[in-house]
């Protein structure tokens, strides 16, 4: 079971190679196959996640959640998507049409690209970049732009305020978010995702870097605009924030992107702090899956418990708490590494 998916990839590679293509073309074809596989994986998971969110929210609130469409309501999202696609697609008269439309398509791109370097199991990533973690950080920060495009293009005051909030929030929280990874990078000395996972053979980084993990959870939650940091959407203040004006299929894109982002965040967390595919007995990809969904459940738990934070408190939390804490964590990690090296060198341990 361990190499189930790797073996399938090998089979497909052999099949393509059987057409008599040269090495480069086979490599390219394999990248495309893997890309499609990841795309399917993400979309399927979005379906599961939306269902899970609604059920989990229901359970927290002492109700059942969707349980009518299909067995136990499992087909609810399918129906929702069909409903959304069949609705009238409205572009507001005063909107900046190109920006407005482009934002809806672009919102999914960075999200999908993040998945390219995530190791779903041993040897199960599309590309194992040397700069994997750096790539993730760089790509995910593009989302800010697209959200502002949506807010600006809609030409709606609520959307605009939502877009401005998104920029302020996501740019600020990027800093502690990046810093939370620095401790891990110092420990492994690599940005490569597979190396980071392998470095957690003995002990997960959540044990060595608990503070960084907490900072990551908070900043990551703010990065993907989920409660209690869902200010850019802020239903009670801004109706629906940056996607107030979006309808039908375009709204579905934003809706699905939100959940794809959530899953991406959980996948990064599982890889960097929870030991990725490492784990006893079960196959690696299943371990990864379990860890990822545990993180997702945690995020949902937090979302359905806490009220929304205020704009100025959001900034206070970032600049006055998270940033100093994550900086201190880096210093302590640096000292710790040196002390450890000295201890080893002196032969005390």
């Amino acid at each position: 079971m361990e190499n189930f998916f790797v073996n399938i990839a090998g089979l497909i590679r052999d099949l393509i190679a059987g057409f008599g293509l040269n090495e480069t073309l086979v490599y390219l074809a394999m990248v495309i196959v893997k890309f499609v596989a990841v795309l399917v994986f993400v979309l399927l998971n979005v379906v599961v996640l939306v269902y899970m969110e609604r059920r989990v929210a229901g359970f927290f609130q002492e109700r059942l959640g969707p349980n009518r469409v299909g067995p136990q309501g499992t087909l609810q999202l399918v129906m929702d998507i069909f409903k959304l696609l069949s609705k009238e697609d409205i572009v507001p008269a005063g909107a900046d049409k190109f920006v407005y439309k482009a934002a809806a398509y672009a919102i999914f791109v960075p999200t999908i690209l993040v998945y390219m370097v995530i190791p779903f199991g041993k040897g199960m990533n599309v590309i194992d970049l040397n700069l994997g973690l750096f790539y993730i950080l760089a790509i995910s920060s593009v989302t800010t732009m697209i959200i502002f495009m949506a807010g600006w293009g809609s030409r709606n005051k609520y959307s605009l305020v939502g877009g401005m909030r998104a920029i302020a929030q996501m740019v600020s929280y990027e800093i502690p978010y990046v810093f939370s990874f620095l401790g891990v990078i110092m420990l492994t000395g690599s940005l490569k995702m597979s190396t980071i996972v392998e470095a957690q053979q003995g002990v997960w980084f959540i044990v060595l870097q608990p503070i960084a993990f907490i900072v990551f959870l908070i900043a990551g939650n703010a990065e993907i605009n989920r409660g209690p940091f869902d200010l850019p959407e802020g239903e009670q203040e801004l109706v629906a924030g940056y996607h107030t004006e979006y309808t039908a299929g375009r709204f579905a894109m934003f809706y699905m992107a939100e959940y794809a982002n959530l899953l991406a965040m959980a996948a990064i967390g599982a890889t960097v702090f929870l030991g990725g595919w490492q784990g006893p007995w079960l196959p690696g990809w299943l371990w990864f899956f379990i860890k990822m969904y545990a993180l997702v459940f945690g995020q949902m738990w937090v979302r359905w418990t806490f009220p929304r934070i205020r704009v100025d408190h959001l900034m206070h939390l970032n600049w006055k708490v998270l940033l100093p804490v994550s900086l201190a964590n880096i210093v302590v990690t640096g000292i710790g590494i040196k002390v450890y090296q000295m201890v080893r060198m002196m032969g005390w341990w």
Binding site: Q61, E62, G227, D230, G234, Q236, W304, F306, P307, R308
Partner: peptide
């Protein structure tokens, strides 16, 4: 009040 501050869950509890 809880709901206006995005506290969906307490809202449900009180309505129960």
């Amino acid at each position: 009040m809880a709901l206006d501050l995005n506290g969906y869950t307490p809202w449900m509890y009180a309505f129960y």
